[in-house]
Design a protein around this nucleic acid. Sequence first.
RNA 1: GCGGGUGUAGCUUAGUGGUAAAGCUCUGGCCUUCCAAGCCAGUGACGAGGGUUCAAUUCCCUUCACCCGCUCCA
Length: 494
Amino acid sequence: MARKQNNKPMDKLVSLCKRRGFIFQSSEIYGGITSCWDYGPLGVELKRNIKNIWWHDIVTSRANIVGMDSSILMHPKVWEASGHVECFHDPLIDCKNCKYRFREDKAVHSFKCSSCPFNFKINNGKIEVNNEFEKHFGGDLFAGEPETYKNSDCPNCGEVGTVKLERLNCPKCGSPELSPPRQFNLMFKTHFGASEESAAEVYLRPETAQGIFVNFDNIVTTARAKLPFGIGQIGKAFRNEIVTGNFIFRSREFEQMELEFFVKSEESAKWYKYWVNERFDWYKRLGVRSDYLRLRQHEKEELAHYAKSCTDIEYRFPFGWSELEGIADRQTFDLDQHIKASGKKLSYFDSMSNNHIVPGVIESSAGVDRTMLTILTDAYWEDDEHDRVVLRLIPKVAPIKVVVLPLVNRDGMPEIARAIFDDLRKHMAAFYDQGGSIGRRYRRQDEAGTPFGITVDSQTLEDGTVTLRDRDSLEQIRIPKDNAVKVLQEKLAL
RNA sequence: GCGGGUGUAGCUUAGUGGUAAAGCUCUGGCCUUCCAAGCCAGUGACGAGGGUUCAAUUCCCUUCACCCGCUCCA
């Protein structure tokens, strides 16, 4: 319900999405709920088209890739093995002065003995100590976890358990004004069983990928897969993001399209490169302007510990370059983790070398909602010359492929148009509209991104031809009405 | 999570301590022979909760949502 913000970059698109039934705010009649969005009649068609194109291009059109659909709730040990529990269960502290957020153990810890003047600080993993007490630590000023010094024995006066934590300070600005440590686990928790107390805690999956890894053995066996081969999956994932926003770009519930492509480790660099190129081209084929797309290779320091290489595909949104998809060479990390945690043998038998090997994996992890936002943003066009707003969607992704219109509502034109519409909608998403002037009806479809319009006019009554209007050029050609299905099918196949 | 901004109809705006106006859109009808024409009629809003008050959309508090910036982002 935000208003008066027409100077904001996304506002016009948000407005159009609501006006035309692409995207609504979730639970709007109750005031909405943060970062949750619902897809309306046009939105769901567009989203479904995106997923279908991905599924076709990545899964069904390829001989060595299969699909799957794993459950959202999985065994809690999956997330321990994957590192999701450990990585995110650290409590974080906010500095009230400089707003820096940090892990509790990164704070500057000041310790003091309660029975003598002995004191020291631990800052960034190092002990800082007054000269007079330096001898107690020898020459080695390495510090362990600050936790281990709490209630330790005093090296100065020798009293037992008298070293106490005196205070914490911000590691950045030194301020002692800090929030209490708080949990920021990004996984959504829920419970199996009717009563919370007695039930096991489970998580909503924060990514779909683990569903693939834990089924690795099942799929290798049943699909008789031979390296290199891939497993693709589309599904919802949930992350308790601290910061959401930019419309549907970052939300807590979102949909992923993930491919795990298993390869012999020595071939991983080759396949990594292959998938980076393949995926980059995919967005171009969806009609996204190529100068608004770029690849960004992660620097060494930026890489997660398990990834050998990682490249993001980014789009230039009105709010800046942002990630659409990550392609990573994860090596054998994921399978290794599950082998360790489950004790099961997740390997592949290579009949060439007669060896059991754990394959490396190239991951392509794309966001459905982000792809949709990209397509909508990229297609949005204000055609000032003709005073209209157009979504220049390629026919393949457009929610409605063709609109059928009688030029005027008499002389039998509505009946003929209706018959053409009935014919067309057996083959493609079509729409019929007889309300208002012809110009108004064209404009409505321009905003919906409908690429083609068929209009029945007086000449149709004479020679059976109709006009076929092109959304972007506004050009019209005449075709026999009985050829409408055929002509459109050809155009849609482009 | 922090700071700032915003919240009246689908959109853009008006207005008031006595429950709200307009244009566009939308719906129906008339008219209309190709790009938001015209005429008639109609639907439709003060984000939510609480407080002050005889009376709150208006004043106060809280909350919710959106936007911008920071922070975060396996």
